[in-house]
Nucleic acid binder design. Structure first.
Length: 284
DNA sequence: AGGGCTACCTGTACGC
DNA sequence: TGCGTACAGGTAGCCC
């Protein structure tokens, strides 16, 4: 007997992964009613609201948005909405029957489906907001530009020219650009052939255009890869949405640079307490 | 106010 | 085999 369920990511969700989860959930749970919410463990990054079941019971999911790495769920005829962050290991599992697993924290009983929030490291969270206040919340208020929108361009980047941080530090800053994490920052800078150590005020317009271009290119590619894995997914416990196998530089320290090839090795350094991977020869 | 650093958490990989 | 330790990274909150 197979259990058919969809397990959405369990590692390092950045913008593309969250977008894949968003579009998957959109295709599967829009129009469904929440019959009951059961909190198995309230100790996530923030305590799961104790009124979650009371507040959401009988509400119908109408819309799911993504902003940066956050998901926002809206409901029919309700002023409430849900703000969800997957942290580093959070994922959703959609299944036909209840099969609990270790680190399942919140269970949404929907019409004919069960949606489970699982998070090994508990860096994720679920919060309730009024939908006219959600974008003013501390989480979203200072959030930077969406990288795939037209607002992320040369002019926008130039307004941050005077920042003292290095290039990778700026890309990691959610109030500059929303949704990039440690993995995609390395990938984007490798694609743009720019060193993560570059100072912002040393960048010329061409280089900034390249960053913008590479950012959009890499993110779009990752999203479409995640989408593809969903389409091909039938019955399996395999995690989906992984872009991991497609990474060109992240986690490849001491391996040959895929552009420079023989003898030129990817270097791993620490920036702001995080690892960065790059090629000293082709990223200037 | 920008920027640097750390705690939070658990699983995994590694050295001895 | 087993134990201890380092590492992985998103975010908020702290301090300077």
């Amino acid at each position: 007997m197979f259990f058919i369920f969809f397990e959405l990511l369990s590692n390092m969700p950045e913008l593309p992964e969250v977008e894949v989860v968003r579009s998957f959930l959109e295709s599967r749970v829009i129009g469904k009613k929440i019959l009951k919410v059961s909190t198995v463990n309230e100790k996530l990054r923030y305590k799961v609201p104790s009124n979650l079941n009371l507040s959401l019971k009988n509400l119908i999911i109408t819309k799911i948005l993504r902003r940066g790495k956050y998901l926002i769920l809206f409901f029919r005829d309700s002023k409430l909405c849900l703000l969800i962050h997957l942290g580093m290991t959070g994922y959703f599992r959609l299944s036909d029957e209840l099969v609990e697993k270790k680190h399942d924290h919140v269970i949404f009983f929907l019409t004919k489906k069960i949606l489970i929030f699982n998070d090994i490291r508990k860096f994720g969270f679920i919060k309730i907001y009024c939908n006219n206040e959600i974008f003013l919340s501390s989480h979203l208020r200072n959030m930077g530009v969406e990288p795939l929108s037209k607002d992320f361009n040369l002019n926008y980047f130039n307004s941050f020219r005077k920042r003292a941080v290095d290039l990778k530090g700026l890309l990691m800053n959610q109030s500059f650009i929303a949704g990039l994490g440690n993995i995609y920052c390395s990938e984007i800078l490798y694609d743009a052939r720019l060193s993560p150590l570059r100072k912002i005020n040393s960048l010329n317009n061409l280089e900034i255009r390249n960053i913008v271009k590479s950012t959009k290119k890499i993110l779009k590619k990752a999203i479409s890869f995640g989408g593809t894995t969903i389409k091909n997914f039938i019955v399996s416990e395999e995690k989906i949405g992984y872009f991991k196998n497609k990474l060109k530089v992240y986690s490849r320290d001491k391996k040959n640079c895929l552009r420079c090839l023989k003898g030129i090795l990817i270097k791993k350094i620490r920036q702001n307490g995080r690892s960065t991977f790059f090629c000293e020869k082709c990223q200037k």
